[in-house]
Design a protein around this nucleic acid. Structure first.
Lengths: 155, 155
DNA sequence: GCTGAAACAAGTAGTGT
DNA sequence: ACACTACTTGTTTCAGC
């Protein structure tokens, strides 16, 4: 699964760091900054994509400006593991759920919910999630603030 | 904090959806797809940036290809809220911690940890986090799989 | 609010060292 | 493995509807 990191040199890491902070920076700018030709940047990026390290570039959206001021982490207690695949499929259809992880412990699933306010959050929890077959209960913590969020450590 | 959504029309949402899935798609391609001029795409993007909705574009990296095969959520129990700001600063310096949220409940902080393996995870937990002043304990769940991850719901 | 043209900048592919 | 050149394509600005 993991790649042999000896194939990746300092230039590759530098390119990744730069693209990790701003995916729309022109490759020619990156080339100038690193003192290499822009052809090189292209080739490195292609290599890193082929290796599967570099995935898609995405824009981020500011949730609170979009009116989502209530964020929560909810752990879901599930009666039996056999329900998980179906539950996950249903959860994915709910737009307010933006992340879903299968975790160890009493609660098999951990999700991140974005809601406009507490009423909206309640609607998602008790109007959608609790209705799913196999869901025995949930335990929710409000997230007051995402203090920081970073990329996977590079190098 | 939230923006007046009446300023945002279908074209804006379409542009955001497109850029949300691929931040490197040329604006001229987006323009063609939506049947508008590429100037228009620029103007909309500028508007959305000014409104604060559209933030930076970033590349994503594949953690497991980079050798990070152990992912965990850890909740941190803190003796007194006064320690939080300092703890958060220290946590931010630890590269393995890629997300940190201030949550409600017994545990004030929830973090996401990326490690190479369980030994590495232990080093982060007991070699770094437990040493911080104000940390009374931690509760960790391994994340076996991030089943899905999406952007903030648009529209 | 929107378009089109034009100047400029960047991306891509082929060739050569 | 790398850079140079030439060609294609995208970005950005501005005048005008």
């Amino acid at each position: 699964m993991a790649v042999d990191k000896s194939q990746i040199n300092e230039v590759d890491w530098a390119i990744m760091r730069r693209l990790g902070e701003n995916a729309r920076v022109p490759f020619s700018t990156v080339a100038k900054e690193l003192g290499i030709s822009n052809t090189m940047v292209h080739q490195r990026v292609n290599k890193l994509r082929q290796l599967g390290i570099l995935e898609n570039a995405t824009y981020r959206f500011n949730a609170s400006v979009l009116g989502y001021s209530t964020e929560a982490f909810t752990r879901i207690d599930i009666a039996n593991a056999k329900y998980i695949p179906k539950i996950v499929k249903e959860l994915e259809r709910i737009p307010e759920i933006i992340e879903c992880c299968n975790i160890s412990g009493k609660y098999a699933l951990l999700i991140k919910v974005m809601a406009r306010d507490n009423n909206h959050l309640r609607d998602v929890l008790y109007g959608k999630i609790h209705d799913l077959e196999g869901v025995v209960g949930t335990d929710t913590n409000i997230s007051f603030e995402t203090v920081f969020q970073k990329n996977v450590p590079l190098k």
